[in-house]
């Protein structure tokens, strides 16, 4: 190669590099995007595939890089929407991408894109069969953002199947607590009985049976409250209204959390112990 040609090519490469560097770092738009951490563009999946030469793993990585680079200080709704789209596309390209599902669980769900986060976590649950975190985060989002305690309990049980030892027991206990909070006590009771029969751990079985007994007590209270309402034409105001007309005595709660009555006169489970006050 002649020296003149080499110099020409070198100058051309230097011009190209400078042009790209200006566009990336010093142009007013780049500066605004860097300061504000905005995202505005999510290309269609087929276009991304062609741009990465057909390499779907590279397409997934590039999408996740862009999502990670967004600043966490109050992104605008459009940026969050584009980030959600990028991460869903990355999940499509590579459902096993760990950073993608972790970022979705940590940011998307809390920024109003819980549905998008669930799609990413659902794909990661299938793509990472030995990882407990995707079904764990999926279940947490189900109960926290969607109030779906039954689905959350199922997801946590999936996470429990992927671990051993104390983690497994802790997750199964969590699933039991969420199952009993679902708005269908009969279904919750069936789930708790099934979980108790499927575990070989005596301590966990005892715990699940106590949770099941608590739900059985709730069922008895609700049946009695319904009978009271039909007889008196009005709902109960406290559980003591049921004794002795409907029940000989109030059912005991093995967990000592107790029962209460909501504003509509329906018996419910107390889910938190009362705060201890200073003497």
């Amino acid at each position: 190669m002649s020296s003149r040609l080499a110099i020409t090519i070198g100058l051309g490469v230097a011009c190209l590099g400078g042009y790209i560097a200006y566009g990336l770092h010093w142009s007013p738009r780049a500066e605004q995007e860097r300061d504000e951490g905005t995202l505005r563009v999510a290309l269609p999946v087929p276009v991304q595939l062609v741009m990465t030469g057909g390499d779907r793993y590279l397409a997934a990585n590039l999408n996740v890089f862009r999502a990670i680079m967004v600043t966490t200080k109050n992104p605008d709704p459009e940026t969050v929407a584009v980030q959600a789209q990028l991460q869903q596309q990355a999940s499509w390209f590579n459902p096993a991408h760990e950073d993608n599902y972790y970022l979705a669980a940590a940011t998307l769900a809390w920024q109003g894109e819980a549905q998008a986060a669930q799609i990413v976590l659902h794909n990661a649950t299938g793509g990472r069969p030995a990882d407990m975190y995707p079904p764990f985060f999926y279940g947490f989002n189900q109960q926290y953002f969607f109030g779906d305690y039954a689905g959350a309990a199922t997801s946590i049980r999936t996470a429990a199947e992927r671990v051993e030892g104390n983690n497994k027991l802790a997750l199964q206990a969590m699933a039991a607590r969420w199952a009993e909070n679902m708005d269908n006590p009969k279904q919750a009771l069936n789930i708790l009985h099934a979980m108790a029969s499927q575990t070989a751990h005596a301590g966990l079985r005892g715990y699940l049976q106590s949770r099941a007994a608590r739900v059985e007590g709730l069922l008895a209270l609700r049946a009695a409250a319904e009978s009271y309402r039909k007889r008196k034409g009005q709902p109960i105001h406290s559980l003591n209204d049921l004794v002795p007309s409907e029940l000989a005595e109030l059912p005991a709660d093995p967990t000592n959390l107790g029962y209460a009555v909501n504003l509509q006169g329906v018996p419910i489970l107390v889910t938190r112990r009362p705060a201890q006050t200073q003497p």
């Binding site: 990465t52 030469g53 390499d55 793993y57 590279l58 990585n61 996740v64 890089f65 990670i68 680079m69 760990e98 950073d99 972790y102 970022l103």
Partner: peptide, 24 residues
């Protein structure tokens, strides 16, 4: 450099990008 963008799996991301580079 790509591994620096990863929060939890820099080895995996760096390897992934290296494999893409090998393909190209």
């Amino acid at each position: 450099l790509a591994g620096a963008f990863s929060a939890r799996q820099p080895l995996v991301v760096a390897s992934d990008v290296a494999i893409s580079g090998l393909h190209f």
